[in-house]
Simulated assay, not measured.
Amino acid sequence: MSWTETEKTQLLALARQSIVHGLETGGQLPVDLDDYPEALRQIRATFITLERGGQLRGCIGMLEAVRPLAQDVAENAFAAAFRDPRFPPLSNGELADLELHISILNPATAMSFDTEAALIAQLRPGIDGVILQEGGRRGTFLPSVWDDLPDPKQFLQHLKQKAGLPSNYWSETIKAYRYTTEMFG
């Protein structure tokens, strides 16, 4: 689905409002879905990425669509600002130059492969978000990560590490899923 400029603007404003509300109250912004058009009430999964000066400042999201889009954006924006374990909670002084990016995920599809080389050969740099799963370990990279890791082999090695696996790990039971996103902000 393609989102209108008005819908994108509404979602970006909602994400920022959620963060401001968190700074002011310490709590999550309540979302009244009646305030949003039908398109923003669809059940969709999102990731919210925060950057300052071109550097990651927080990124939280959902891989499965379980709640309305507007609610997902508000909750993930709050979580990216205050609950990303890689960073301290956002401070008031960081808000002015905070960049927000919203990625709306399309449903993931399982990839079929029998070797690591076959998996790497299927990856579409700049297009695919990838979920890697082995047992209870799971990690994902959004399509935007290709900007920093354009080589499919390196992309996969780093994704393995994110999932808590050694970069040279391989097994017959490893699973991979691909998805696309619409990113704006």
Rank of each mutant, 00 (worst) to 15 (best):
F155V: 08
T49N: 07
S144F: 10
G164I: 11
Y36L: 04
N168M: 05
E182A: 02
M111A: 12
E51P: 01
E134H: 11
A15W: 13
A163Y: 12
F141S: 13
P85K: 13
G58T: 07
L23R: 09
G185H: 05
E24G: 01
R178S: 13
T6V: 12
N76I: 04
L90K: 04
E134V: 03
Q55T: 06
P37N: 02
S112D: 07
R41H: 07
G185Q: 07
I104H: 03
E94H: 12
V20C: 04
F155T: 13
E116Y: 01
P166V: 07
G126L: 01
A70F: 13
R124M: 09
M183G: 00
D147S: 12
L100T: 08
A74Q: 08
R52H: 12
S18W: 12
Q122K: 14
L90C: 07
L50I: 03
D151L: 09
S18D: 13
T9W: 00
R41E: 06
P143Y: 03
N92S: 13
Y179E: 01
H101I: 08
L12S: 09
A81T: 11
T6H: 09
L33M: 10
L119Y: 11
E38S: 13
M183Q: 15
T109R: 15
A81N: 09
Q42D: 09
A70I: 06
M1F: 04
L119T: 04
D32F: 03
L90M: 14
R83Q: 15
G129W: 08
Y177W: 12
P89R: 11
D148A: 15
